[in-house]
């Protein structure tokens, strides 16, 4: 975990605890949206699920690093970029959810585990 000057701010420890609670819920929601995208029978269903996962990943990518979870933030950012690339591709609505995205999200979820266990 990276130490920052702001770690010593009064109230930061409580905010970090709050973030860990949010992360726990976010991790579960992202995994759920990823599975929905994988199992989606329509392009619209896949897109909706991936977009929902992406919205949560974007927030985690922007905040995790400030709470010392730099690798979690980077993994979330990587997932976000992969989802963007897939959804922006011209033939996206004719393709199923790529397995690479699922693998990347699985990596993100795995990276969260030790932090959540330690919290």
């Amino acid at each position: 975990m990276t130490a920052f000057a702001h770690d010593a701010l009064p109230g930061f420890a409580a905010l970090r605890t709050k973030f860990m609670t949010i992360l726990e819920g976010a991790q579960a929601d992202i995994a759920s949206h990823a599975m929905d995208a994988w199992n989606a029978e329509t392009a619209a269903g896949k897109t909706t699920s991936l977009a929902a996962a992406r919205a949560i990943l974007h927030k985690i990518a922007g905040s995790a690093g400030s709470f010392g979870l730099k690798d979690v933030g980077a993994a979330a950012s990587a997932c976000e970029a992969m989802i963007d690339t897939h959804l922006d591709a011209p033939a996206s609505d004719r393709q199923p959810c790529p397995s690479d995205i699922l693998i990347a999200i699985d990596d993100f979820v795995s990276r969260c585990e030790p932090y959540l266990d330690a919290a």
Binding site: G11, L15, K18, I22, K59, G62, S63, S66
Partner: peptide
Amino acid sequence: DPIILELLSQFVAA
């Protein structure tokens, strides 16, 4: 993202 706003509140205060 409310957590970012709370973080900013702490940073601004300090």
